[in-house]
Protein backbone atom coordinates (compact mmCIF):
# COMPACT_ATOMS: atom_id res chain seq x y z
CA UNK A 1 0.00 0.00 0.00
CA UNK A 2 1.43 3.38 -0.90
CA UNK A 3 1.82 5.77 2.01
CA UNK A 4 -0.98 8.24 2.56
CA UNK A 5 0.04 11.63 1.20
CA UNK A 6 1.07 13.84 4.07
CA UNK A 7 1.79 10.99 6.47
CA UNK A 8 5.48 11.90 6.43
CA UNK A 9 4.60 15.48 7.21
CA UNK A 10 2.35 14.38 10.07
CA UNK A 11 5.15 12.23 11.47
CA UNK A 12 7.53 15.15 11.32
CA UNK A 13 5.03 17.44 13.01
CA UNK A 14 4.60 14.90 15.79
CA UNK A 15 8.36 14.71 16.31
CA UNK A 16 8.78 18.45 16.61
CA UNK A 17 5.79 18.78 18.90
CA UNK A 18 7.10 16.02 21.14
CA UNK A 19 10.52 17.62 21.28
CA UNK A 20 8.94 20.88 22.32
CA UNK A 21 7.37 19.31 25.40
CA UNK A 22 10.63 17.68 26.47
CA UNK A 23 13.33 19.29 28.52
CA UNK A 24 15.84 21.22 26.47
CA UNK A 25 19.47 20.16 26.31
CA UNK A 26 20.88 23.67 26.35
CA UNK A 27 23.53 24.14 29.08
CA UNK A 28 23.26 27.62 30.56
CA UNK A 29 26.91 27.45 31.52
CA UNK A 30 27.94 30.71 33.15
CA UNK A 31 24.65 30.87 35.06
CA UNK A 32 24.41 27.20 35.89
CA UNK A 33 27.56 25.16 36.52
CA UNK A 34 27.73 21.98 34.47
CA UNK A 35 27.13 18.70 36.22
CA UNK A 36 30.40 16.93 35.44
CA UNK A 37 31.09 13.22 35.85
CA UNK A 38 33.43 12.30 38.76
CA UNK A 39 36.45 11.35 36.67
CA UNK A 40 36.38 14.50 34.56
CA UNK A 41 39.83 15.55 33.39
CA UNK A 42 39.67 19.25 34.09
CA UNK A 43 43.00 20.17 35.58
CA UNK A 44 45.83 18.42 37.44
CA UNK A 45 46.11 19.11 41.16
CA UNK A 46 49.28 18.55 43.18
CA UNK A 47 49.21 17.11 46.67
CA UNK A 48 52.73 18.31 47.39
CA UNK A 49 53.01 16.74 50.86
CA UNK A 50 53.10 13.38 49.06
CA UNK A 51 55.67 14.40 46.46
CA UNK A 52 59.14 12.94 46.89
CA UNK A 53 60.62 14.61 43.82
CA UNK A 54 61.17 11.24 42.19
CA UNK A 55 60.82 12.99 38.80
CA UNK A 56 58.86 10.08 37.33
CA UNK A 57 56.02 12.34 36.22
CA UNK A 58 58.34 14.82 34.55
CA UNK A 59 60.17 12.05 32.76
CA UNK A 60 57.08 10.21 31.59
CA UNK A 61 55.28 13.34 30.39
CA UNK A 62 55.04 12.99 26.57
CA UNK A 63 55.35 16.69 25.89
CA UNK A 64 57.59 17.71 28.75
CA UNK A 65 55.23 20.12 30.35
CA UNK A 66 56.14 19.45 33.99
CA UNK A 67 58.96 21.49 35.53
CA UNK A 68 60.44 20.32 38.82
CA UNK A 69 63.28 21.93 40.83
CA UNK A 70 64.50 20.57 44.14
CA UNK A 71 67.45 20.45 46.48
CA UNK A 72 68.77 17.94 48.96
CA UNK A 73 68.52 18.56 52.63
CA UNK A 74 70.11 16.57 55.46
CA UNK A 75 67.94 15.68 58.35
CA UNK A 76 69.55 15.24 61.74
CA UNK A 77 69.47 11.66 63.06
CA UNK A 78 66.22 10.65 64.60
CA UNK A 79 67.89 8.78 67.46
CA UNK A 80 71.20 9.78 69.10
CA UNK A 81 74.13 8.06 67.45
CA UNK A 82 72.16 7.45 64.32
CA UNK A 83 73.05 8.37 60.80
CA UNK A 84 72.10 11.62 59.14
CA UNK A 85 69.42 11.16 56.49
CA UNK A 86 69.14 13.17 53.33
CA UNK A 87 65.84 13.94 51.66
CA UNK A 88 64.60 15.88 48.63
CA UNK A 89 62.83 19.17 49.15
CA UNK A 90 60.55 20.45 46.40
CA UNK A 91 61.44 23.96 45.23
CA UNK A 92 59.29 24.29 42.17
CA UNK A 93 56.55 22.18 40.62
CA UNK A 94 54.90 23.72 37.59
CA UNK A 95 52.73 22.39 34.80
CA UNK A 96 52.47 24.26 31.51
CA UNK A 97 48.84 23.75 30.55
CA UNK A 98 49.42 25.23 27.12
CA UNK A 99 51.51 22.12 26.41
CA UNK A 100 49.64 19.58 28.51
CA UNK A 101 47.45 17.28 26.47
CA UNK A 102 45.57 15.88 29.42
CA UNK A 103 46.78 12.34 28.84
CA UNK A 104 47.03 11.71 32.57
CA UNK A 105 50.20 9.63 32.36
CA UNK A 106 51.82 11.69 35.17
CA UNK A 107 48.93 10.84 37.45
CA UNK A 108 49.15 7.17 36.54
CA UNK A 109 52.89 6.90 37.14
CA UNK A 110 53.08 8.85 40.40
CA UNK A 111 54.05 6.20 42.97
CA UNK A 112 53.07 8.30 45.98
CA UNK A 113 49.65 9.61 44.91
CA UNK A 114 50.75 13.22 44.68
CA UNK A 115 48.90 14.08 41.45
CA UNK A 116 45.13 14.01 40.96
CA UNK A 117 42.55 14.89 38.36
CA UNK A 118 40.31 17.80 39.32
CA UNK A 119 37.10 18.67 37.38
CA UNK A 120 37.94 22.37 37.69
CA UNK A 121 38.09 23.83 34.15
CA UNK A 122 37.75 27.60 34.40
CA UNK A 123 41.41 28.61 34.27
CA UNK A 124 41.56 30.28 30.89
CA UNK A 125 44.10 33.09 30.63
CA UNK A 126 44.56 35.90 28.14
CA UNK A 127 48.27 35.19 27.74
CA UNK A 128 49.68 31.79 26.89
CA UNK A 129 52.60 32.31 29.32
CA UNK A 130 50.22 32.58 32.21
CA UNK A 131 49.04 29.04 31.58
CA UNK A 132 52.16 27.71 33.34
CA UNK A 133 50.78 27.18 36.80
CA UNK A 134 53.07 26.93 39.82
CA UNK A 135 52.85 24.67 42.82
CA UNK A 136 50.71 26.91 45.03
CA UNK A 137 48.06 27.10 42.31
CA UNK A 138 48.30 23.35 41.76
CA UNK A 139 47.98 22.85 45.51
CA UNK A 140 44.86 25.00 45.58
CA UNK A 141 43.29 22.82 42.92
CA UNK A 142 43.79 19.87 45.22
CA UNK A 143 40.83 21.15 47.23
CA UNK A 144 38.55 20.75 44.26
CA UNK A 145 39.41 17.08 43.78
CA UNK A 146 36.28 15.05 44.55
CA UNK A 147 36.30 11.92 46.65
CA UNK A 148 36.95 8.86 44.49
CA UNK A 149 33.72 7.36 43.22
CA UNK A 150 32.51 4.26 44.95
CA UNK A 151 33.52 0.89 43.53
CA UNK A 152 31.10 -1.06 41.46
CA UNK A 153 29.09 -3.55 43.50
CA UNK A 154 30.84 -6.93 43.36
CA UNK A 155 34.14 -5.37 42.36
CA UNK A 156 37.39 -6.89 43.53
CA UNK A 157 38.71 -5.46 46.77
CA UNK A 158 41.36 -2.77 46.27
CA UNK A 159 44.87 -4.17 46.57
CA UNK A 160 46.07 -1.98 49.43
CA UNK A 161 43.04 -2.84 51.53
CA UNK A 162 43.49 -6.53 50.77
CA UNK A 163 47.13 -6.34 51.79
CA UNK A 164 46.32 -4.45 54.98
CA UNK A 165 43.64 -6.93 55.93
CA UNK A 166 46.01 -9.80 55.30
CA UNK A 167 48.55 -8.23 57.67
CA UNK A 168 45.91 -7.50 60.27
CA UNK A 169 44.56 -11.03 60.10
CA UNK A 170 48.05 -12.42 60.50
CA UNK A 171 48.68 -10.20 63.50
CA UNK A 172 45.38 -11.18 65.08
CA UNK A 173 46.10 -14.87 64.58
CA UNK A 174 49.52 -14.45 66.14
CA UNK A 175 48.07 -12.65 69.16
CA UNK A 176 45.43 -15.31 69.60
CA UNK A 177 48.15 -18.00 69.52
CA UNK A 178 50.16 -16.10 72.13
CA UNK A 179 47.08 -15.78 74.32
CA UNK A 180 46.42 -19.51 74.20
CA UNK A 181 49.98 -20.34 75.17
Amino acid sequence: MPPIPGSGLAKGLAVTLRTMTKKTVTAQYPDVQPDLPPRTRGVIGLFEENCTVCMLCARECPDWCIYIDSHKETVPPAAPGGRERSRNVLDRFAIDFSLCMYCGICIEVCPFDALFWSPEFEYAETDIHELTHERDKLREWMWTVPAPPALDPGAEEPKEIAAARKAADKLAAQQRQEGQE
Partner: peptide, 13 residues
Protein backbone atom coordinates in the same frame (compact mmCIF):
# COMPACT_ATOMS: atom_id res chain seq x y z
CA UNK B 1 11.19 30.46 21.43
CA UNK B 2 8.98 27.81 19.83
CA UNK B 3 11.56 26.95 17.20
CA UNK B 4 14.23 26.69 19.88
CA UNK B 5 12.19 24.37 22.06
CA UNK B 6 11.19 22.23 19.09
CA UNK B 7 14.91 21.76 18.45
CA UNK B 8 15.69 21.07 22.10
CA UNK B 9 17.18 24.51 22.66
CA UNK B 10 16.17 27.39 24.88
CA UNK B 11 16.33 30.28 22.44
CA UNK B 12 17.10 33.83 23.53
CA UNK B 13 17.46 34.05 27.30
Amino acid sequence: KVMAHMQGRLGPM
